[in-house]
Design a protein around this nucleic acid. Sequence first.
DNA 1: CGCAATATGCAAATCAGTTGCATATTTATT
DNA 2: AATAAATATGCAACTGATTTGCATATTGCG
Lengths: 119, 119
Amino acid sequence: MNLKLTKKRQIILNTLKSHDGTLSANDIHKLLPEIDIVTIYRNLDLFTKEKIIKQINLGTNEAQYEYQQQPHHHALCSSCEKVIHFTAPDEKIRELLGLKDFQVDEIEVTVKGICSKSH
Amino acid sequence: MNLKLTKKRQIILNTLKSHDGTLSANDIHKLLPEIDIVTIYRNLDLFTKEKIIKQINLGTNEAQYEYQQQPHHHALCSSCEKVIHFTAPDEKIRELLGLKDFQVDEIEVTVKGICSKSH
DNA sequence: CGCAATATGCAAATCAGTTGCATATTTATT
DNA sequence: AATAAATATGCAACTGATTTGCATATTGCG
Ligand SMILES: [Mn+2]
Ligand SMILES: [Mn+2]
Ligand SMILES: [Zn+2]
Ligand SMILES: [Zn+2]
């Protein structure tokens, strides 16, 4: 692939970089109404394939995207729908999983529960 | 809620019970073409709310469902798309996550990588 | 600049899942 | 067992997220 550094491509990526937390395609389009939603989808797909950003699927209706400084995990509050980002020692988790005969590329832990504000 | 034990409801649940692995709404409809897809969706939602089955979202286009004997986790092979089911010591994982100020109801670990047959 | 490759916008399509409503089945009541 | 109320089902139509086709615009290279 011979990718081009277009203006809109950079704007979309910068929006993700500077935003703390996750954004859906629609969230980005609301922030950047001058960019067509289709262009946003195409670039999110592209960035995801290039592993520049991460697509997060928490079982909600829209996929979420984030620029990931360092790999981390997510907890979803069933009460207020807030997403909490947290890190965990991957090596130790990997040991606990004990997956033989499987080349582990990525571990993603999704926690469901209730956040401090909701209980 | 006052649920009724209808024939089709039982057939859908038995299909999930006797199937080893996960099934999507569409998978079930192919196995049970005599049952309307809407009825399948409505019953899958119902079973999920009643915690009789579990909805699994692996980032694929369709949600997957399974009748869960005991809680466990999933690994998805990026090469052959196979889903591997595995258990892990939840208590120990929970400790590693160290989520303070969050009431953890459920931990779901999703692993991506390559299965033994694909490498 | 001039050209080929790639990206964008718009409209239309697709696809999973949902909703409204008339009819059918189940379950409680007589 | 008949009746009635409650719940479930099927069909058609809808929704909302994401994708695709295609004409036009932008980018990067010589
Ligand atoms: Mn995050
Ligand atoms: Mn499973
Ligand atoms: Zn909360
Ligand atoms: Zn595989």
